[in-house]
Design a protein around this nucleic acid. Structure first.
Lengths: 203, 203, 203, 203
DNA sequence: CATGAATGAGGGTTCATTCAT
DNA sequence: CATGAATGAACCCTCATTCAT
């Protein structure tokens, strides 16, 4: 498939270079070279390096928010919602590993990204997830003796840990691994790691 | 207490600047200024920005490894070990927030840090934790239907999420919060978030 | 003649500055200023100060080698060949005094230049000249009781001494001086400085 | 022999480092390290890098001038004087190769050294040699149709060429080589390289 | 749209020199 | 005498960005 939209080609190239080198070590020249376009064309479409980066990251946030909003208002069984959230990350990693890689390495923890604007993005992310958790408590599925944002941290932290390991190790996900990962996170998150717990049936 | 060891003063200043601006945006001049020493003195003690950064990070890894080795070979009750691991992070955050901040934002996920050497550090970190988890399974405390490295990811992921939120929000930890956090992570990790689970008594 | 090729302008400027200040004391900013271009443009064309210097020196070696190869295979009378070699240096000094100046002061004896690569350049230079001397012996023009590389050293040493004096004194060469110099070197080199020798007729 | 004079140790160390790296690439720290003394001690004895270099070079000029003056006023046979001049360089190379190396690579042609003061040194060197040549003409030994400074350039150029080759190739001189070199230079300089010339008997 | 030459502020690093001990 | 910590001006090089064509 030959892409004819230069803008898209540039974004894809940027995605690769940002993943490989990180934002700070990425040169606009690298992106142009990888995209196979001239130096100036990158600036023709994107007014600065920061804007180009933001275009990429905004796309990520949009999808993430949309997914969380969908789950929040869906009437799936609660456990299904959690599974879908995990699945979203794993599917996204399969489909756009570079995007997830950048999220993990350049956004999620990067002090560089954490200007006021960046913080707001995160708060929304956590807040949407917290809404889901709160609902889980309201419907009597999740324990109420732990605050919903604690549940959020633990749940998202676990997902991020898995994704991080895959990203940093440049590992591939096949269907079987995906199911094992979802099951593992769900099992421990919902039933606990202790042996006396009552595990859910495997997926 | 007036510090008279310039080297230490420089490291402390670097810790602050790296935390505030991130590695890439830190200027050696900033560090010198914050340390109240001349530009050249920084280079008198540390041959480059990278070395200065590495000295800091190595110090972190040393403490972390030491703690994990201590827990691995201690004969505390298993749950106590997990609590100690969480406590280590929280105490460190209280004592050296800058160090933990740098670990989270510049090391933990930074693609820049993840050269071969960096990856090896992480593998050791995970591996030591996995030893603890495997022991928990061996002594019959943790379920065996989930692989020990899955347990490791989830446990460490949860801790990192909490620390990240504190770091990025520049939040303080008091004793009460510390206990609540430990309790929350332990409760969910061990007993699960589901309502039918059998919670442990609070700390 | 207005030069429109910036690259060439930069090389010419570099030639002047290297001559005036020597390699070590030449600032890239000096070159840019003298060329009337911006600082960055120098790096646009030459990746480093060293490369810029090498480009200049390579040009010199190329011309020198070419001349020696031409003389080696030409069927001029032998004495004519020696005269042509001397003439080459003098003409080059007239045409590109900066180039010759740099050769003398920065290349010919500079320990800095004498890395393995630099040494190889010199060996070729001497070797090509030695080929000419050996031919002179073969055709019965030069004495055979002195090794050809001894003849080479003396001949080239004499030329270098003349050029050095001109370079260091920033002297000009007119036609008359050129002929006197060639004659002097040829007379002494071929017939000797002793009074009993049988001088050649002056040029 | 353990040297107990620190000043001398420093000069010797400087001699080595200047030879190995050249003036511009020599660090005061290198000299101190090679001398096995502290950083500040070098400055205790020599007020600057330049002064230290000059001390070395002045020593060289003094010896050279002294030798030339001795030859000028000696009543040796003229040819013997020329041989003694060549011998001086070869003996010095054998005794203090570093000193000669520095003379060749850092003084003789270096634009860096050729400030007004440096030029004056050279003029004296040439002038003293020219005195010897002029005397050779006056006593009827050397031809008078070539100006004395031409003879000087050719004679000194030949010597320098030989020394340069030895210095740059880090070659050793034994007695046999020394005699061959002297003989070669003398033969060609006095009798010429042409085959019809009347060679002197070998040394 | 597309190119790549041109700009120049900025940053890491070096190193001769000074000076308190 | 001797040490080495401390200074800071200077320099090479980078690279985001601009702009003429």
């Amino acid at each position: 498939m030959v892409k004819n939209n230069k803008q898209e080609i540039i974004v894809d190239a940027a995605l690769e270079v940002f993943r490989d080198k990180g934002y700070a070590n990425t040169r606009m020249a690298d992106i142009a070279r990888r995209a196979g376009v001239s130096y100036g064309l990158v600036y023709h479409y994107f007014e600065s390096k920061e804007v180009l980066f933001d275009v990429i990251v905004e796309g990520w946030w949009d999808r993430l928010y949309q997914m969380l909003k969908d789950e929040r208002q869906s009437d799936s069984a609660f456990q299904k919602k959690l599974e879908n959230i995990i699945k979203f990350f794993l599917d996204m990693y399969a489909e756009k590993p570079n995007l997830l890689s950048i999220f993990i390495t350049e956004v999620s923890r990067s002090s560089v990204y954490h200007t006021a604007r960046g913080l707001a993005k995160f708060r929304t992310f956590f807040s949407l997830t917290e809404d889901v958790m709160a609902e889980g408590q309201k419907v009597g599925f999740l324990r109420r003796d732990i605050g919903p944002h604690y549940l959020t941290y633990i749940f998202l932290g676990a997902i991020e840990a898995f994704i991080s390991v895959m990203v940093l190790g440049k590992e591939a996900v096949n269907r079987e691994r995906k199911e094992r990962t979802i099951n593992g996170v769900i099992q421990v998150f919902l039933c606990g790691a202790k042996v006396e717990s009552n595990p859910l049936p495997a997926l």
